[in-house]
């Protein structure tokens, strides 16, 4: 497993620093995992390449889209409150801080505020132990109490809390905790969304969005790479790499030429080769993410 991680990690790290010159414009080249052959690629490395900061959408942003696509609330999918007592080490606390935060986003997005305060209290307790108690100040708790039953406000509050925690950890150089929280939040939201669909059906909004998570996962892995020396981060990266592999091996690559069109003052990027969800990919991703999620929450 460790070897697999090092090889995959090496590919990611290498891919993020590759650059070649091609004609008059500079083009960075990043080698995808081979879809056809496994030919070795020789590239020039530019040491002046700036390091990149990777952002990912919050779980709330995904749930908002899923709701528009016809997603619904399945309360049995969220992580039970009782599991909190099992999270005693930093790794499980941070991962499940992300899990419970995603649950908060899901509940408030789908108009269920009954358990909101209880889940916020769990997130607050885990946050305290991770050194982000500042985010959960009196003002936040007052906002929640004053907006009890107002799902739109609770949705905004849960998003703000996740975002403020993220900002706080970033500023205070708690990258390890941040990498784990983001990973936990991602796994939980993908687990929930995958389980909203009972069986695969081509070109549905939710299935497409599950496929889009391949891109989000790439940015999470690139982000985590900075903190991979920490064993807890490298362990979750092993799981994330195996999930990434499931996406890549099972999705279908569709060839295409990209095009840039201008309509008024908005530019539209269309076409281009892309990875498409298939029934095989959907089932494999659902199975893998359920396995990882169980590992994180059933500690």
């Amino acid at each position: 497993m460790k070897n697999k991680f090092l090889v995959k990690g090496g590919i990611f790290l290498f891919s993020s620093i590759l650059i070649i010159s091609c004609g008059p414009s500079e083009i960075d080249v990043d080698v995808e995992d081979p879809v056809g052959d496994t030919t070795e690629v020789i590239q020039n490395i530019d040491n002046d390449l700036p390091s990149i900061e990777y952002s990912v959408p919050t779980p709330n942003e995904l749930f908002e889209i899923i709701k528009e696509e016809g997603g619904e609330l399945k309360i049995e999918l969220i992580n039970p409150l009782e599991n909190e007592e099992n999270y005693i080490d930093l790794k499980s606390k941070a991962l499940n801080f992300g899990v419970y935060s995603a649950d908060l986003g899901y509940m408030s997005c789908f108009d269920n505020s009954i358990e909101f305060l209880k889940y916020t209290k769990v997130v607050e307790r885990l946050g305290d132990e991770l050194g982000i108690s500042e985010v959960f100040d009196e003002e936040l708790m007052e906002r929640i109490e004053n907006n009890e039953g107002d799902n739109d406000s609770l949705f905004i509050i849960s998003n703000d809390t996740y975002y403020d925690s993220y900002q706080y950890l970033e500023e205070n150089e708690k990258g390890t905790e941040l990498a784990l929280i983001i990973s936990g939040g991602f796994i939980e939201s993908l687990y929930i969304v995958s389980n909203l669909v009972d069986s695969y059906s081509e070109n549905t909004g939710i299935v497409d969005k599950i496929g889009d998570q391949k891109l989000v996962l790439e940015n999470i892995l690139d982000f985590c790479m900075t903190y991979m020396e920490d064993p807890s981060v490298s362990e979750i990266m092993d799981d994330l790499f195996s999930l990434s592999e499931v996406f890549e091996k099972n999705m279908e690559f569709v060839e295409g030429e990209s095009e840039i069109k201008t309509d008024g003052d908005v530019v539209t990027l269309s076409g281009g080769g892309y990875f498409k969800m298939t029934e095989k990919a959907f089932n494999a991703v659902k199975e893998k993410v359920t396995e990882i999620r169980t590992k994180i929450t059933q500690k």
Partner: peptide
Amino acid sequence: GSRLIKEKISI
């Protein structure tokens, strides 16, 4: 053979 290459293009 052939291989998929990811190119970063300025838009």
